[in-house]
Design a protein around this nucleic acid. Structure first.
Lengths: 125, 125
DNA sequence: CTAGGTGCAAATTATTTGCCGCGAG
DNA sequence: CTCGCGGCAAATAATTTGCACCTAG
């Protein structure tokens, strides 16, 4: 089943970086190897890879979506100044604790948790 | 300080509803009273009210932003099927607990926490 | 008066989609 | 052959902004 050259490049890049790039950043990067690839192809492949569970989509607060080659459950800290996203060490089971404390008439299926902060570079300014 | 007719209408509506409407939903509603109001004005006033701390912006996962007339800190549960947003009762200090357990080289300033679930209406189907 | 707000329309930004043609199997 | 994928460009969707006029304070 199709793992085309373009799709493989995108996946490899996401697995190799920890910068949680946007679609356009993936595009710019992959274009160095395949100069004729289109942004539409990048978007389509990102969605395909996500459906296959090979990458994750990272929602941001205001900016464009980012993509993450690490699929294991982990937390992100987002710089409220420049939008930078990094992985965070956090006590295991932190989401489960929240889970237990919520009451609702909705059938609860999950918890969306992000840490907000200011990155070292932005703190310096 | 300017609290125009249009701005007041928008604020009143947000305070009266618990539906966390989008900008367009606010627009449709306010237009019943002021048929010539523009969507641009709605967006501008929503931003102004937010800066004044009178309303809050609610980020969603995929859809358009929603607005909330309740400014006190509280949690949202979001229906992953239809996007409906409701307030949730939750143990106080739940965010502080998360806060304490996070380690990062970022200067941590906050925690973004939402509950995901399926609303009663969508569960029935 | 006059600063800020408004309506309107056009611009931006992010993302998705239609079409057509190519190339691997 | 033919079917999925890719490139390109146009469409959508959400939000923002420039501009000229208007209005509340």
């Amino acid at each position: 089943m199709g793992m085309t050259r373009q799709r493989k490049l995108i996946l490899d890049y996401l697995r190799r970086t920890d910068s949680h790039p946007s679609a356009v950043e993936v595009y710019d990067r992959v274009r160095k190897t395949l100069p004729r690839i289109s942004l539409g192809t990048v978007y389509r492949n990102l969605e395909t890879l996500r459906r296959q569970g090979l990458i994750r989509k990272v929602e941001t607060y205001g900016g464009s979506r980012r993509f993450d080659g690490t699929v294991e459950d982990h937390l992100h800290v987002i710089c409220t100044n420049c939008g930078k996203i990094r992985d965070v060490e956090a006590a295991a089971g932190i989401k489960q604790e929240v889970f237990k404390k919520v009451e609702s008439d909705f059938r609860i299926t999950g918890v969306k948790l992000d840490i907000l902060g200011v990155c070292p570079e932005c703190t310096q300014k």
